[in-house]
Amino acid sequence: MEYQIEREEKEVLGDFKPELIPDACGGGIDDYEEALHVLMKFVGSMSSALEQVSGRGANAIVYQAGKRMGHEAGKMVEKTDDLEKAMQELSEILGVEFFFDMWKPTNQTEYTIEKGNETVVKLIFRDCVVRQTLRRTGLPQKGPLCYLLYGYTVGAVEEVMGIKGKLDIDHVGPNACLKTLTIKWGGK
């Protein structure tokens, strides 16, 4: 007798023809949830293994990968040297899964602070898939995966504004993370 793996779920059987433009994904919300969680665990484990093997060098490698992605994504939107417009475009690039706002303490009048040839702006990331993934895997909110997002953000801003940028982490929390974006005027 042929051996059969036993499963609780029923296998989906149906007909299938080659399709040019697929119009259905199949599966329900529970399947998406399960797939997301599997991906989170995979990516989280990969990130912590990378850190174990390469130490802090892992952050630098991943940062460069993120930056390259950001530059590619930034090519899709209009170039501007207006910071507010650039932030609007960045929010379109990052999408709703990386919902962020500009932030300032109440005693500061403007969102931006000028320091010589640099402009500094604080960004508060409210929704973040990286945070979700790290929490799913029980990892602290730091390390290579965070650097992927830093790189992505910096790359996109650099591409949109034609400047050199840097992102530093100020504070992380379970509901939001505060970052400082520094823009260096005067080209790359």
Partner: peptide, 28 residues
């Protein structure tokens, strides 16, 4: 307050409540 909620994680008594904030998705 920027609603990071790190105070919620640290408080041993769960003594605070933040109202009218952006509640981040908890897909994890």
């Amino acid at each position: 307050c920027m609603a990071c909620l790190s105070c919620h994680e640290i408080c041993p008594a769960e003594a605070m409540e933040h109202k009218n904030i952006h509640v981040a998705k908890r897909l994890y």
